[in-house]
Structures are given as C-alpha cells and as structure tokens.
C-alpha cells in the first residue's frame, strides 16, 4: 500500500463494488473530445460496416430507426477518472447490425464524422456488449455528447464509445486509432486500469 498523503482524509462515496480502481463518481456528464463538435444533419447521416471489397453494409437514419431498438442502463467510466452510474440510452445492439456481415477479421476500427477513430476487438462489440445509440436520458443525443449517434461500449473506457460515429471497418490486425496513437491504451479495460501505454 502507498504511503499515506500527510493530512489527506478524502471523501468516501457510497459506491459499492461498482467503481473501478482510480475512478470517482460524478452526477454530471463531462465532455471529452479532441476538437470542434461536428454537426451532422440526419438526412446526410449514414452508418456503414466495411467488411472488405464489395462487402459494405450501409444504413440510413430511417433504416436505423426501423431496426429493433433496445433501452440500455449502464455505468460508464472515463479515462479522465470520472464514472457515472445508471446512465440510460436507446439504440440498436451491434449484434443486429453485424447479423449479415461475413468476415474473418477479429479487429475493428470505428470511424467518426470529423475524423476521429478508435480500435475495438470485434469480440467486444458482439454478444450484447455494444450498441449504436441515438437517445440519452429519453432525449435525442445532443451533438456535444456524440449525436446524432454514438457507439456505446460501456465495459471499456468511454473514449472507445466513439461520438458522431459513421462506420466500422474490419481489420485483420489490431491497429491503433486516434487516442491510441496519442498515449492511450490499445484495449482500455477500466477494471485493469488500462489507461495509458
């Protein structure tokens, strides 16, 4: 155990076992992003999964809305040390979107409007672990928080839940995305504190 910091008592929160190491709870919803917020019109919006040449699956906004929708309540954990419990979202599970995708690739690069990218292993997007969400707290997702739609991968640090998401490209090997080339971990498990390189 580390040596106590002289005079520091701290303010313990009633947090149970749900708070990963090095995190603190917040009731607000801080924003972390690298640049200006892109504003994407719904009529220009689309989402695609690129599995290889000639194997691109694409959805318009209307097509996304016509898919089965799920309500998700989950805790989220940001690498900048805040966590927020019981956030509520609505969107489409990636299992639905990947249903007809044929690929042997085990890794993915998630792309966003505005150029942001982040890498996520395919296994972490499937089996009820990830969603393409367009509502937060019962309201359309605000652009500052990633609207029209963002990825939600709550078991990884929140930078993996890419805002303004535009598509997913399958990759045979695990390549770093934007934050991952700027000092942050390739995988980002909050329970193992995989924050940085």
């Amino acid at each position: 155990m580390a040596t106590p910091t002289s005079g520091f008592t701290g303010r313990r929160q009633n947090r149970g076992a749900n708070l990963p190491p090095g995190q603190y709870l917040t009731d607000s919803f801080p924003v972390m992003s690298a640049g200006p917020t892109p504003h994407v019109l719904l009529r220009d919006w689309s989402f695609q999964i690129a599995a290889g040449p000639g194997r691109t699956h694409r959805w318009s906004w209307e097509e996304l809305q016509a898919l089965p929708q799920e309500d998700v309540t989950t805790d989220i954990h940001c690498v900048t040390h805040w966590s927020k419990f019981g956030t509520t979202w609505r969107g489409v599970t990636l299992d639905t979107l990947f249903e007809d995708v044929e690929s042997d690739a085990e890794y993915t690069m998630v792309h966003s409007y505005g150029g942001y990218t982040t890498n996520v292993p395919l296994d972490d997007l499937l089996d009820g672990k990830a969603w393409l969400v367009h509502e937060f707290d019962g309201e359309p997702l605000p652009s500052a928080h990633g609207g029209p739609a963002r990825l939600l991968v709550p078991h990884l640090y929140f930078w993996k839940s890419a805002k303004w998401v535009s598509g997913i490209r399958m990759m045979d090997q695990d390549l770093p995305g934007f934050w991952e080339t700027n000092g942050y971990n390739m995988y980002g498990d909050p329970w193992r504190e995989e924050r940085y390189w």
């Binding site: 607000s28 801080p30 924003v31 972390m32 992003s33 690298a34 640049g35 200006p36 917020t37 892109p38 940001c78 900048t80 505005g114 150029g115 500052a144």
Partner: peptide, 29 residues
C-alpha cells in the same frame, strides 16, 4: 469549460478555420 470550448470552437469553424487545426481540451472532462 465545456460551454466555453463548444461556443468558441463552433465560432471558429464558422469563421472558416479548418476543424482539423482546432484542438480542444475541457476541464471537468
């Protein structure tokens, strides 16, 4: 703050600055 960064960065994009030339960081985030 988030409000400050959102306002200023969107004004600069309106002014014609390339979004890729604008880097932002917010405290509390």
């Amino acid at each position: 703050s988030t409000g400050f960064v959102e306002a200023v960065s969107s004004w600069l994009v309106e002014d014609g600055h390339e979004p890729a030339r604008i880097r932002t960081e917010r405290y509390g985030g």
